[in-house]
Design a protein around this nucleic acid. Sequence first.
DNA 1: AGCACACATGAATCGACGG
DNA 2: GCCGTCGATTCATGTGTGC
Lengths: 400, 400
Amino acid sequence: MSASDSAGLPAPNPIATPAPKPRVARVAPKPRPSKRPRRVAPGELPLGQILAGDCIKQMNALPEGSVDMIFADPPYNLQLKGDLHRPDNSKVDAVDDAWDRFDGFSAYDRFSRAWLKAARRVLKPGGTLWVIGSYHNIFRVGSALQDEGYWVLNDIIWRKSNPMPNFRGRRFTNAHETLIWAARDEGGKYDFNYEALKSLNDGVQMRSDWVLPICSGAERLKGEDGKKAHPTQKPEALLHRVILGTTQPGAVILDPFFGSGTTGAAAKRLGRAWIGIEQDVTYRKVARARIDAVRPYDMESLRVSASRRQAPRIPFGQVLERGLLTPGQMLTSGNGRHRAKVRADGTLVAHDVSGSIHQVGAALEGAPSCNGWTYWHFEGPAGRAPIDLLRQQLIAELDS
Amino acid sequence: MSASDSAGLPAPNPIATPAPKPRVARVAPKPRPSKRPRRVAPGELPLGQILAGDCIKQMNALPEGSVDMIFADPPYNLQLKGDLHRPDNSKVDAVDDAWDRFDGFSAYDRFSRAWLKAARRVLKPGGTLWVIGSYHNIFRVGSALQDEGYWVLNDIIWRKSNPMPNFRGRRFTNAHETLIWAARDEGGKYDFNYEALKSLNDGVQMRSDWVLPICSGAERLKGEDGKKAHPTQKPEALLHRVILGTTQPGAVILDPFFGSGTTGAAAKRLGRAWIGIEQDVTYRKVARARIDAVRPYDMESLRVSASRRQAPRIPFGQVLERGLLTPGQMLTSGNGRHRAKVRADGTLVAHDVSGSIHQVGAALEGAPSCNGWTYWHFEGPAGRAPIDLLRQQLIAELDS
DNA sequence: AGCACACATGAATCGACGG
DNA sequence: GCCGTCGATTCATGTGTGC
């Protein structure tokens, strides 16, 4: 289904609630096949449509200064070489699609500058841009948008609660992606729903790091073959926070790399108008069907899932890093029968055993398991105390 | 206090016991005043010294390929006009925002490329670079280091547990900083203490997002006036994780923007050698006093959980030679689906396949590869166990 | 039905060493 | 430098299956 197939549908973005700043543009009366973009007059934006073809050409065909916010998930230029297998020998289904391959950094930079320039033209004066990326591309994109005149407002870290691990043990688990939020111009006024975000976050200011799970399970769109319909579908919770936080109801949101249409789905749920651009006909079909099926959220359930805080887990190593204990220091067991020395990596050594606080405790006691936090004691200013006291100190800090 | 003031001090990083990979360079016998850098011959690195003056000149005076790791916390104020590498073609008369922005970024980019290039020259082939920054500069620095030929290994998010709130309520609370970890070259071998980091994190691999508080309280250095001695002092816990995770004991660590000397303090504690460069005489004094007061951890507590990678290799044939298994004996796969017979030359036979323990396992499972040590099991006195147990017996003998 | 366990999978720049 | 072989390496979730 291409964008034109949806021409007869009713406007997919009825604005259900009164907007503080009504900004709804009229839907184009007769949208036409759009692979070859046609100049669009102001006031006839192709709202609720997925335009086909190259996003730069399509953006250049839109009227200048007509869009409130742009969310862009451009190719990351991952530069993968060989295959990667998990320890169980299964193969990782990597992103090796043709659209993610570029001929070096300078080709990628040219591409970035081109779409960023076109995007900036269609933004309204108070408009903002969101881009998401990883370390492969985000520095290129960030520099390019600064060069193009955008003004960075924040960088936002999406901390994945369930990232793919690092299988070879050669790097840190790549457990986050970076978003950049930028205004079209320095000093311009832009939309920021401070209070809405604060209440979304249990009454405290929304920070620049967001903990959200990756898109999986029922939310992940599948093809007829049961495989994932899009290799990099973003979770709707991410877009929910972006849209709720930085646009007004009725705003026009443009996504030049529409993919599976997460931006459109979230926008529709939240009463914002949207325009998508996507080259791949299969992705367009998937996105169209998805968005047509969208019904407004049960807002209460979304709020809970988005703001759920996880209980802080304090590794013993952090007690060392924070200097509450020192490598070389001796710990004693609560019953006074055993001693062990702390090492710089958070393991203990006692005679011929070494390992975590739990492992060494269990080994010395000949027990199947042992809670090292309560088993081991240190000599504190007020006498001997379990090291759990130190953990409590760190947990208390996190709460404050 | 300039670097020369510390000339008479004993080397602050005596490596007491043999390190796994001894990499300690000799301390310069007669360090001299160093504001005007002097070419340093290989083998006379100014270890434990804080060099004065411009970091680019100082780095260029160091021998090529002499440093294991560089930690850099570059300035990111764009007020570079005047002092830093400004091209003298420009006269600042009119207020032209676009030009001013471009000039600001391009001057900063030149500065970044210059120090990154100098840093890369002094790095050993397997050396790595750490840089820390915020959204003001990290995209520029990240792009520049990619352009200079560094290979990004990770970007790391330092998630501050106690950030400064956003008072005006116009943006997200800026609650993190970004670090980039990069190798000198693509494909080079670099140090990564996977197991140590995993131990430090309670047995799960270390992720790219680190939760640590900002530097405050007793750790925060104060001047005589009671005010903070340095505006952006980094917490030592951050450097502890960086150094423990990505260098070996005895490594040479260089910090070209030494500031209050957190890198030197953490390096000294962890039994690594260090070199600092700092322009500001007050910061040099603060750092010198701070580091002199640091006592290193003892060597045993610096020993870190070893990876199996570093264990000596035992050929399977040796298990036979030592009589731990007998030719003709049957092995079974861990999943119980396959059997194979041991031959006298250390190969296995199963139906129509024969070869090494790895090859036969891979063939039977239809997998690209297989670790035969953990795949194959034998019938031991206490039931079925992986043949890896026998190997560990031999490794343990070697240790004693 | 409910529980236990197996299995699948996610934007991935993911070796070392000897011949 | 190429090539073959050894052998090191995973976390959080969701779904499916079998008892």
